[in-house]
Simulated scan of single mutants.
Amino acid sequence: MEAFWAELRLMQGLLAAFVLSGAIGWERESRNRSAGLRTHILVGVSAALFMVLGESLVNSFAKEDNQVRFDLIGILGAVVSGVSFLGAGAIFSDRHGEGAKGLTTAAGLLATAGIGVACGLHLYVLATGATALFLLTLGVLWRVSEWENGRNGEQQAKSSEQKREGQNG
């Protein structure tokens, strides 16, 4: 029965990852992005699960055999590599070679994995703070970026109009 309660305590990290990753996924879903609520939750909870499993392996077997080496950093590296590969699939270039699409989605998946890792290590304050910063970046800074792009678009339109008038005049 003690093992049941110990595993239930480990679930805290996964539940925290579920909630925090879901917040980022919800923001992406509300903007109709390709990776939304479910994808971000799966990435965050998976990252947390890998860290919880790694920590459990260290705690269970490290004392039994001095020849066996356990490395949480290696698990962290595997999570980052796996999510980066997933994010690379979300990035594509437009047909004219003028830019890449999906960079924010890929970065969001990596950020969500980081939140999951923090939750898996039971660093809930850090994970919550990082989530708040990521949501600020995706929300408020997105609006600033859109405003700036709109302003630049107006300036480019005026410049093009002046050039046409100069050629016709």
Rank of each mutant, 00 (worst) to 15 (best):
V43L: 04
L10Q: 11
G54M: 04
E7M: 06
A3S: 13
E27Y: 03
G54E: 01
L14S: 06
L8D: 00
S84M: 12
V58Y: 04
L86K: 10
V58L: 14
L57C: 03
F85W: 09
E29F: 08
G77R: 10
S84C: 09
G74S: 12
A78S: 12
G87D: 11
G77H: 09
R31V: 04
F18R: 08
W26C: 08
R38Y: 14
S60D: 13
R69D: 06
S60L: 09
L53K: 01
V68A: 12
L72C: 07
T39C: 15
H40I: 01
D65T: 11
E64A: 12
A47V: 03
M11V: 11
E64Q: 14
V45C: 02
F50L: 15
M51K: 01
E7A: 02
I24H: 00
T39N: 14
E2N: 09
G13A: 05
V68N: 08
S56D: 00
L10W: 07
S34Y: 15
L15A: 14
W5L: 10
S21F: 03
E29D: 14
V83R: 07
I41H: 03
R33H: 15
N66C: 10
M11K: 06
L20V: 02
G13Q: 01
G87E: 08
A62C: 12
N32F: 10
Q67T: 15
L20F: 02
L15T: 08
V19C: 08
R9G: 07
S81N: 14
D65C: 10
R28N: 11
G44H: 07
E2Q: 12
G44T: 03
G22W: 00
L14H: 00
W26P: 01
A6P: 05
S34H: 15
G22K: 00
N32Y: 12
H40G: 03
A3I: 10
